[in-house]
Simulated scan of single mutants.
Amino acid sequence: MKLARLWNWFIFAIGFLFFFLPLIGTFEFSLRARRGVYSFDAYRNVLSDPQFRETFTFSVVMALATIVFGILIVTPTAFWVRLKLPRLRPVVEFVTLLPLVIPPIVIVFGYIRLYNTSSFLPLTGSTWGTNLLLVFGYSVLALPYLYRAVDTGLRTLDVRTLTEAAQGLGAGWVTILGRVILPNVFTAILSGAFLTFAIVIGEYVFAALLNRPAFGPYMVWMGGNRAYEPAALAVIAFSITWACMGLIQLATRFSRHSPGPN
């Protein structure tokens, strides 16, 4: 038992060093903006940059729009497949895995070719249309994670019994989804939402090729034009991602410890 415990701690230490040593080095380098002393000048420069606030705000808005759109598409689909079309589950799962195989640059070039100003739907010819394409693209990238989060939540439920009980009380499909299914898979949806947020904040290809002022292209531009600010920006982006992961853990723990329905 002692040998196994020591081995576990050894593996943990190796993993800790592998993941956190580069981050510690990046953080230490970001503090060297002022010669001879450690300071937070690089962070101050980044946070006071109007372009940082503009791009981060834009990406947050796009992330929220993507989360809402993804939930509205994925939740009814996963519910209907589990309730009425269980034989199609392998097909749907395969389709949701395609964004992990198809490079984002292929998807965005397809958008540009299909929705350019000379096409039937010239979405790239306007700001709102381009933003709409950006939300669609982000939804595709987040589909594998959001679908699996919702599907995992549905696996813990007796969907058929809940649906039949709600129908017996006169509830329609919208009521069943909104007042029966969604509250029971809220934690799973929340986990998928935080993962989607983390993906959208750091995404580069869609925003760059669609020429939108997102946070991902700003980080790349900062990396090519500054010295210490890119390291500070990397630490900030990493902190945002880990904050999302922490919120997922808190939501899961709260769901486990919350009292069940009477």
Rank of each mutant, 00 (worst) to 15 (best):
A4I: 14
A4T: 07
W7E: 02
W9Q: 05
W9N: 11
A13P: 02
L17F: 08
T26R: 12
E28V: 15
E28I: 15
F29H: 13
S30E: 14
S30M: 09
A33D: 14
F40T: 08
F40W: 12
A42S: 10
Y43R: 00
S48H: 02
P50F: 00
Q51D: 08
E54I: 14
E54L: 11
F56K: 03
V60N: 05
M62R: 10
A63L: 02
A63I: 03
T66E: 06
F69H: 06
F69A: 10
I71A: 10
L72K: 12
L72G: 08
I73K: 04
V74T: 12
W80L: 07
V81Q: 03
L85H: 14
V91D: 06
V91M: 09
F94C: 01
T96F: 04
L97F: 00
L98R: 02
L100Q: 00
V101L: 01
P103G: 07
P104D: 03
I107N: 07
R113I: 13
R113V: 14
Y115K: 06
Y115W: 10
N116T: 10
N116E: 08
N116I: 08
T117K: 11
T117V: 15
L121N: 10
P122A: 14
G125A: 12
T127Q: 07
L132I: 13
L132C: 07
L133A: 00
L133S: 04
L134R: 00
V135N: 09
G137R: 00
Y138H: 06
L141E: 07
A142T: 13
L143E: 06
L146Y: 11
R148H: 03
G153E: 02
G153Q: 04
G153M: 06
G153F: 08
L154F: 01
L154N: 00
R155A: 12
R160P: 02
T161Y: 08
E164S: 10
A165P: 14
A166Y: 12
G168E: 05
L169H: 05
W173F: 00
V174T: 14
V174Y: 13
T175L: 14
G178S: 08
G178H: 03
G178E: 01
N184Q: 01
A188T: 07
I189H: 09
I189Q: 12
L190A: 14
S191N: 15
S191A: 15
S191D: 09
F194M: 08
T196P: 03
V200S: 05
V200W: 11
I201S: 04
A207N: 11
L210W: 06
P213L: 13
P217F: 13
Y218L: 15
Y218N: 11
V220M: 13
G223W: 02
A227V: 15
Y228G: 12
Y228S: 15
A231P: 07
A234Q: 06
V235H: 11
I236K: 03
A237K: 00
F238M: 13
F238T: 13
I240V: 12
W242A: 14
C244L: 05
I248W: 08
I248T: 07
Q249S: 12
L250Q: 05
T252Y: 06
G260A: 12
